[in-house]
Design a protein around this nucleic acid. Structure first.
Lengths: 141, 141
DNA sequence: TAACTATATGATACATAGTGTCAATAACAG
DNA sequence: CTGTTATTGACACTATGTATCATATAGTTA
């Protein structure tokens, strides 16, 4: 049981829990990710941690995505961005103008997948869903 | 009104309707796409039309996606594949083993988006959804 | 049907998002 | 403090495109 509302993004602890070594480059990448409020690209993250190798940044991102601590999203053109995971399983709204990410879990989403499971030829092994929005802040400008 | 059941994939006609020139390279790319039964990558298509420039293949794919005649899908890792569009707006099931693509339109999907529209901070301007399956043929092997 | 012109082509270089290799380095266990 | 093994950073390479530009051609018009 996790305490509701007490969402931490202790990315380094996530890596430690999975048995990875706590290195200086990983700490710097994790710290930088925790500072990002909105969705960010891997290349942007590389720039935010000068001195850390590009490959290390990508490797760290990959570990965090595999751990479920980070979500990989696709922009409308398919370009990838990353966003901190705030809840277990969820989907995202992404503002196409400012990149602000929102999470949502909707009972109708779950209902839809249950309904779909009966129709498809085979077993559902995963899914992807992103909802693109023009957020109220951007719409106001 | 379209005639239900009479789904054609006249990709060349789609380009003509949009005012593009009917060139030999475009005909070859369009013909090759119409032969693909499952989702395919752009590079695979390039190989299937030897002699046609890679840039031309990508340009033709882009025109067809913009026309709605071709769908760009994302595999679980985000890698793009393309699939002929059979109906107006729909979503896809993709077998993660063989790449077979199925279309679906589910009333609960529409209901879900209507429900979501009330919750999000802004206006929904688009979405993306793919359902990954292990199809019955692959599961049998 | 010949000529004209805008569009399209193909070669090439470049951009973005990663992954594989490998020698050097550093974390952590003992 | 030392040894082992994971990790790093540099670099090369792959995949998926896009930009540029000289050349070629589709479709129009005389």
């Amino acid at each position: 049981m996790t305490t509701p509302g007490a969402q931490r993004h202790d990315l380094i602890a996530t890596l430690e829990d999975r048995g990875f070594r706590l290195t200086a480059p990983r700490r710097r990448v994790a710290d930088s990710i925790e500072e990002q409020r909105d969705a960010f690209t891997a290349e942007y993250l590389c720039e935010s941690v000068p001195g850390v190798g590009r490959a290390t940044v990508y490797r760290t991102i990959k570990l965090l995505v595999e751990s479920g601590a980070l979500c990989k999203l696709a922009m409308p053109d398919g370009a990838p961005k990353y966003s901190l995971a705030r809840v277990g399983h969820h989907h995202h709204t992404v503002c196409v103008r400012c990149g602000k990410v929102g999470d949502f879990r909707d009972s109708t989403v779950e209902r839809m997948f249950r309904s779909l499971a009966k129709e498809v030829d085979g077993e559902i092994v995963g899914h992807r869903m992103e909802v693109y929005i023009d957020c109220s802040d951007c719409a106001a400008t």
